[in-house]
Design a protein around this nucleic acid. Sequence first.
DNA 1: TTGTAGGCGTTATCAC
DNA 2: GTGATAACGCCTACAA
Lengths: 353, 353
Amino acid sequence: MKPMDHEPDNDRHVRPTIADVALRAGVSTGLVSFALNNRPGVNPSTRRRILEIAAEMGWSPDLRARSLRTNRAFALGLVRDTAAAPGDSFFPAFIAGVERDLSPVGQALVLASASAGPSEAETYRKLASERRVDGVILTDLRAADERLALVAALGLAAVTVGEADIDSPFPAVPVDAVAGVVAMVDHLVALGHRSLAHVAGPSVILHERRRRTAFEHACASRGVACRVIDTDSSARGGGEATKALLADPENRPTAITYSNDRMALAGIGVAHRSGLSVPRDLSIAAFDESDIARYVYPSLTSIVTDAEEWGALAARTLLAAIAGIELAEPRLAPARLVARESTAAAPGARPAS
Amino acid sequence: MKPMDHEPDNDRHVRPTIADVALRAGVSTGLVSFALNNRPGVNPSTRRRILEIAAEMGWSPDLRARSLRTNRAFALGLVRDTAAAPGDSFFPAFIAGVERDLSPVGQALVLASASAGPSEAETYRKLASERRVDGVILTDLRAADERLALVAALGLAAVTVGEADIDSPFPAVPVDAVAGVVAMVDHLVALGHRSLAHVAGPSVILHERRRRTAFEHACASRGVACRVIDTDSSARGGGEATKALLADPENRPTAITYSNDRMALAGIGVAHRSGLSVPRDLSIAAFDESDIARYVYPSLTSIVTDAEEWGALAARTLLAAIAGIELAEPRLAPARLVARESTAAAPGARPAS
DNA sequence: TTGTAGGCGTTATCAC
DNA sequence: GTGATAACGCCTACAA
């Protein structure tokens, strides 16, 4: 035996290549490639024969070779800051949506973490320099997000989940943040609430900021008081914000909205421990619910967005961008209010007319 | 502009290849490769010069070429059934752990979904035939899991998260399921509970089955009654199981353990709606908590496992297996009981001696 | 319609 | 110790 390990005729576990198919079909590799890729210029009968033989031999494309040759990775990347949002219920659903649209078209999702180890920028840089992905999905966009310039400089395609606040070379998949907030404020005002509060996530995050602004505007235009507290989006943060809001019995809101449901649940916990009953003494509402919102007690009034659909739309938009197609401005169904048990008439309020 | 985008000589953004480096250094590409990979047989001064020039030119390895040549993907795969466990709090943490150990060694995580579109087997098959990954992490192992044979037949490496119940060619990263359950049952028995119940996930899932068995054994050996109800692991399922358990006031458990925290939260909801107070009238406990368990009211007594560490250990074990190294049996710290507010003395029970 | 040849960037082989 | 050169599997101008 030679030191070389080429014995394609011997080893039964060698994957057939297009050369093997070509040999068997008595044609050239080029023709096989054309036939396999559904390209014009191949005699229909020849094509059929080639496809048959390829199937029979169990040929399947080797992505590595194809990648090298075509300079594409056939994969998209998603970098998450895992430390920033533990227990986040939005992400898993979002990712499921992304995958749903990727796998049928032979694309894969490469997940990378930014929090641990190398910095976020380094993670994107590596993804690009190794050419592991063709594009990235940018989530949790920040104010003046430096990732836009970075990713563009790296030559990656991208899609932003939500609209950027600066010039962006990338398509965006926005969702109407205002409608839901307005519906929520109207809902609470109709219940007689005149002093509201919003427990927000970090305000560098654009969608957090937008919710906050929408909340403040809606309150102002309805002439109701509103307080906003920033948190780190964690359950703990939500609890602490609630404590702060309830600290002064003389001057506390009668309804609190939270930027996610785990903060809201923590808020309910704090309220209970303060001797307040939800929703009798205090109304509670949330954004971005997971399925538990429906089943806890009291069930959570929420502004819900279809996270999975959002992910799917983002994936589709990015794939189109990579293919050089510009999709008609993709727009997600606006977030909608789902009223449940955690919101009720404000204490001492007469029912709205 | 032509529709083609190939203009490598024109584009100023061409990445330097080792050929470029070799040219500049006045050596051959082979030598550059050796130098860059820290392999013996290169004159130290030559090596230094090559490294300098490579850095200066901004060379970085192209994974595609390396993959093609070395027949490795430098990536691991994880196939999840997204539909099966929406809102699962275990997975995100687990994945974060996987990534934590992967990125520092230049490996990536490819996530694929099985629920939507192609079948689970098809997903693994594709991952292998495209050669996208070197190995897969098998989670939520099922009884007589057919994935073991499939993945082995596909020539993929793998690691199982938890021990298989059949012969497995793959290393496993088990966790002691029994200790936590025993601690939980003892905790409840000490509180005076004599009639327990367990709301389990699908019993095809091995860890669900093991918990169930451990629960039944522990109850039997303590001489306390136990009822088990199977669910689909969803919050809804947890709620319905609770309804069933509480249906007959004459004969209902005084404590219920749930296989995950969202079922437990739903259970608390059902209890409240049935006019029962937790933990006064009914004690509630959970497994696999997310961070909200600490902050809800009442806070949840839980059996907690370090999901992130589990993911990291699984990744490490699989990487070792791929490298041909067999790690000393990796073992995770056993799950431990964290008693909180949701469990208390059984109604009418005298405090344990 | 089909065949040929060259190259994508890297690593492995084998002479020098 | 060093340097050509041939693969890896596929795609694609270009020639026939």
